[in-house]
Design a protein around this nucleic acid. Structure first.
Lengths: 242, 242
DNA sequence: TGTAAAGTATCCCGTAGCGGAAGGGTCAAC
DNA sequence: GTTGACCCTTCCGCTACGGGATACTTTACA
């Protein structure tokens, strides 16, 4: 396939493809005698990958570096990119919430303190730097913690309500419908505020029993709740893995 | 308030504020004798507005032009920006769907035609130009306003609308075209705000009947609506499992 | 088989939106 | 009255291309 075809398929300009070739980011598999760039299917997949990175705000130089690394694993990359896209959506949701509040304020329906006028923006600035600088070499886990911290009053209330309900039923088997339904609520709630994959959900569950800070907090709602939730979450995640 | 305070509040750099002053985009209301920039609360609101535009990818020059227009109406601007943010989220959701499919493909669980590998990206290029180039000019404002309400309007409104419509048809069979059509709208709506797989959709449907809080809320639109939706959602999910 | 249109190539210059360092005033505190 | 945190104004640099200009190739079709 020649430049124009690729360009139209991927929705980028021909100039962009030239540029990527120039800087060695995406070099076509083949070049004709006349100098025409011929792209393969593999090239196309690479381009897709590049665009995912770009969507996440990675600079081209960084993308090149990552993808040229001999230990680069496409699958792992995709999964991490997906998680980062989830996070980006969360952030966008915050901006949306902010603008909705602002609209209400402009109608005089509500007052807004200055510090609330900018929630959602801060992270948008250099998303990759905070998140991914070290992560593409390491295996950091603790991100879930922050998510729970960033909650407003409404969320906090809902949060408590769910936990109280879970505490009430913590005697039943974690795989029972009762338990699974309630834990499903928890899952969907988390996805409202933060976007979790089943895998991430399961990971979070593990932390409930492995990290005493979590355990302590959760067990305030009822002795053994953390353990109960952890099990239920595992099962739920397993059943809901796409 | 001096630069640093504003910068921290809004999550931008001091240099950025300098720049905005330089190009006349955000000129502080007051300047001390020593040349210190002093920002007012009004300045802060303007900055917020600017950041919304930026989030939407407007170039600074355009933002300046729009906001300096004497017929500029803050409320209307906010509403339009909100709508464009919704659209941006939709587009991001498409990217997310694309990457999820790609992950499945990389596991060998599915094949993907080349043209599907890039859905979601194309629009990211010049979002404002198609939509807003002439519209921010000065006239013909309220016509788009109407459209906005019907097509992309406020989540809550749309939400209610869908439920009312579903309530109206809840007498028909859940597998009828009428029902499946409407439930499809619901499915797509959910995917605008949160990205649901058919499986997750089905799971949600189960919760409508198994969790009384859901049931109660939904049945406010019409007795038995929760049960109706639950069935329709199961069927829809089954038919749309890719 | 010839020719125009469409596609492609390589230069090369320009731009947006700041980042960051240099060099130098200012202000509140102790 | 000096220290340290904050502020100012240049000025240079950078990224990720856009957009010509100019010249060669390929394709369509008459």
């Amino acid at each position: 396939m020649k430049v124009k075809e690729i360009a139209e398929l991927a929705g980028v300009s021909v100039r962009t493809l030239h540029h990527y070739d120039e800087i060695g980011l995406l070099v076509p598999d083949e070049v004709t005698e006349a100098g025409y760039r011929i792209y393969s299917d593999k090239n196309l997949d690479t381009l897709q990958q590049i665009l995912f990175f770009k969507e996440l705000g990675f600079p081209l130089e960084k993308i090149k570096e990552i993808m040229h690394n001999p230990s680069f694993d496409r699958q792992q990359a995709l999964i991490r990119q997906r998680d980062m896209l989830y996070r980006k959506r969360s952030q966008l949701n915050e901006v949306i919430r902010t603008i909705e509040k602002t609209i209400q304020e402009s109608k005089g329906e509500r007052k807004m303190p200055n510090r609330d006028k900018f929630t959602g923006f801060d992270f948008s600035h250099n998303p990759y730097e905070e998140e991914a600088r070290e992560r593409w070499g390491d295996e950091a886990v603790d991100e879930s913690e922050e998510k729970v911290k960033n909650m407003n009053g409404y969320d906090q209330e809902k949060f408590n309500e769910i936990f109280r309900e879970l505490a009430r039923i913590r005697g039943v088997s974690p795989e029972s419908d009762t338990a699974q339904d309630k834990i499903g609520i928890w899952y969907h709630y988390l996805n409202e505020v933060g976007n979790y994959s089943p895998q991430a959900f399961e990971g979070l569950g593990h932390m409930y029993v492995n990290d005493e800070r979590f355990t302590e907090n959760i067990d305030q709602f009822g002795e053994g709740l953390a353990a109960f939730m952890s099990q239920a979450m595992s099962i739920y995640a397993e059943r809901n893995k796409s």
